[in-house]
Design a protein around this nucleic acid. Sequence first.
DNA 1: ACCTTAATTTATAATGATTCTAAACTGCTT
DNA 2: AAGCAGTTTAGAATCATTATAAATTAAGGT
Lengths: 146, 146
Amino acid sequence: MLHTPGIMRAKKAPTADLTVLERLRTAGLRPTRQRLALAKLLFAQGHRHVTAEGLFNEAKEHRVDVSLATVYNALHDFTEKALLREISIDSSRSYFDTNVGDHYHFYFEQSGRLQDIPAERIALANLPEPPDGVVARVDVIIRVKD
Amino acid sequence: MLHTPGIMRAKKAPTADLTVLERLRTAGLRPTRQRLALAKLLFAQGHRHVTAEGLFNEAKEHRVDVSLATVYNALHDFTEKALLREISIDSSRSYFDTNVGDHYHFYFEQSGRLQDIPAERIALANLPEPPDGVVARVDVIIRVKD
DNA sequence: ACCTTAATTTATAATGATTCTAAACTGCTT
DNA sequence: AAGCAGTTTAGAATCATTATAAATTAAGGT
Ligand SMILES: [Mn+2]
Ligand SMILES: [Mn+2]
Ligand SMILES: [Zn+2]
Ligand SMILES: [Zn+2]
């Protein structure tokens, strides 16, 4: 007996899906259909830098039915739970980075693309202490005219 | 014979004004009333970090009659001529910096304030070369939760 | 001073990314 | 199965910024 497409879709998820589901649960986020689909797009392959609009379009290409508002909600929810980090590079839009570890960036102004630079590739010495408060993050952005 | 207020305003400008006027001319920008007034606000005292809205309000306080569109135009014209530099820190708005030399920043997230860090205060070694293109600028932003 | 012209200013509308609203829906616990 | 807080969503609203196009002005030549 052949299984129907409908049943196939509901079948127990393969490893990658389970991982994503666990990630959401661990973060305290309900693994809804929308979040699971977006998380799969975001975390399936290596590290990525996406915009809300970009992820929204990617979802459409993959026949993931999700609203733009939900993409924004998910990106922010993921960021709050440290599954993503937000990067301000261009005042016109926000980027979200699936690499939440310590690292820096090349920013290619022409294309708007971001590329990771591992933390150990740059020696940042003598970082001054702020006069008040605590350092939340140190951003290094090498802007490239390409 | 006493001079009228109208004539007083048209009188030869004091040193500070001349400097600003020369700066605009040297940059190839017509020293209009609006640009002169904004440049005076920007460059009169030490280095500053302003937003368009902030400068617009400051102009109002100083009875400088100028439109918001002109503030944006001037900030961008000044930036093109390297009298200012634009800083992207927060995706919601742009900052303009009167310090166009090599330096870095503290960003106080609570207040939205920026503070300069002289270039020599941070040792940036082993900066990797971009795969393509030429480095336009290296931004270092220390984000402080205050 | 007067002309001419291109640059500049400005009120106003438009844009575009992001956020808000409030109603419908759904995952999870009991 | 029921209840409910959490989530999704269409659509409206927001807000910084940019575009438009008409009025003004700086600069140079006469
Ligand atoms: Mn794909
Ligand atoms: Mn003042
Ligand atoms: Zn990254
Ligand atoms: Zn600065």
